[in-house]
Amino acid sequence: MNIFRLAGDMTHLLSIIVLLLKIYATKSCSGISLKTQELYALVFLARYLDLFTDFISVYNTIMKVVFIASSLAIVWCMRLHPLVKRSYDKELDTFRHYFLIGGTFVLALVLNEKFTLQEILWAFSIYLEAVAILPQLVLLQRSGNVDNLTGQYVFFLGAYRAFYILNWIYRYLTEPRFTRWIACVSGIVQTGIYADFFYYYFISWKNNSKLKLPA
């Protein structure tokens, strides 16, 4: 563990807290993409299967359970909670996310660290996470204005993998034989996708105005 990865994990956790706060406080999920939330739930379920096979640390286990539980809770809320589900922007959340699932799974079959079910699913979860935010960014663009909590959610989510990049640089410099190309390249792609959104988020913060994305 190092300060960069800890910062990344805490920022990731914060993004989920912000999202849950928004849904709990407003009893609304307007502006949130259910498809992105479902992709994230799939990412965690695929990546954290090793809960049953490996023990890394208490911290690791607790965080995995928290991420799985919270992502499933958000999906449940948006689909089944009587009040929250009414505010879901179904007509705007139209990204064809099944192509993302299919494409990243095929990539995982081809590009993995070991051709075993667990490693294929791990690689799949890494690739899928890199692009999971796309439905949300498309939804943000279509709905135009972004409320504070949604903006912060996306910001923290993007920042977390950026911290991981610093973590990987740190580990590369301090650990012997640290080469994790799949995670590093995917992490860079993932952070890069957020960069465009960050730009508009920063501009609106600088001008102290409500975040507006180009149509």
Binding site: R5, D9, H12, R47, D50, D54, I56, N60, M63, K64, F67, E113, W122, Y164, N167, A183
Partner: peptide, 10 residues
């Protein structure tokens, strides 16, 4: 690559 604890990150 040692088995088991390779994926030690979240």
């Amino acid at each position: 690559v040692e088995e088991g604890k390779y994926h030690d990150e979240l």
